[in-house]
Design a protein around this nucleic acid. Structure first.
Lengths: 147, 147
DNA sequence: AAAATATGAATGAAGG
DNA sequence: CCTTCATTCATATTTT
């Protein structure tokens, strides 16, 4: 994908791995714009879970624009549908509880420091209160801890 | 995939816009220190992958300090966990930085393309099998769209 | 101002 | 299908 000799902001400790990646052809599928366009057209047309035959047909067609396998098409539809649904789920929960808001205050530029709002005593109190109530909302259980 | 730095036209330049300038629409979410503090408190408490309902609750709380969406919270936890894991992995990989040459082990491929069974249900495995000869059996039509 | 770093966002690939 | 992992892209911030 990157046509520019980027050598981007990767941490310096894994330069070896990055150099190894150059020669390994085993990078993940990076769809060409034409491929994405066609996939989205199919999705917009209503296709959600193509059967094996459809997957193969689509793969053959998209193969004209670049290397692609059936599983790429399969994954693409799975992911696209799942993420659309995920977004809907969050949006549906939007009408839960919306109390006040605001706390409109002027932003101050702290020069070279990270831009942030000014902290008054009231702000700190609000933060602490918010933190306390949120932690009450989410009593942390051991089963949440992942490793 | 937006390769274009989408910059929504800063429509109304007024005091309100100035207050929201820190992370106005068009740029990525820039969390307030209060928001970061609370997120880290939740993370320290053991929360790793909040479900959509929790995401919405957290979003509602953090919304008191600035504009925020559910996906921001979602991404924050995803990234925080991933980078913690990444750091551990990097430290663990400190041992085996001299094993690259040995990876030339000739895993002899017998010419037959291996079936990808990780993603396939029983029916989808046929895709790889028929990958070479399905074309003439299923000529491509633009009627894929199963509206 | 350029380089390096930190981190928000995105998505391919799997796991369960 | 829903959830999670991994890697990568893009940009805000910090450093030199």
């Amino acid at each position: 994908r990157s046509l520019v000799p980027v050598q981007t902001s990767s941490s310096s400790s894994d330069a070896i791995a990055a150099a190894e990646l150059v020669h390994s052809g085993g990078t993940r599928w990076n769809p060409m714009p034409e491929q994405v366009k066609l996939l989205e057209a199919l999705y917009a047309g209503g296709l959600r879970t193509p059967n094996p035959v459809q997957i193969e047909q689509i793969t053959a067609e998209l193969g004209r624009f670049g290397r692609i396998e059936g599983k790429n098409v399969f994954y693409w539809f799975q992911n696209h549908k799942a993420r659309e649904r995920q977004k809907q789920k969050r949006a549906a929960a939007f009408h839960l509880k919306k109390e006040e808001m605001a706390t409109k205050e002027a932003t101050v530029d702290l020069g070279r420091k990270r831009k942030c709002r000014s902290w008054s005593r009231a702000d700190v109190a609000v933060v602490e209160d918010c933190e306390r109530r949120t932690l009450e909302l989410f009593p942390l259980h051991p089963e949440w801890k992942q490793i």
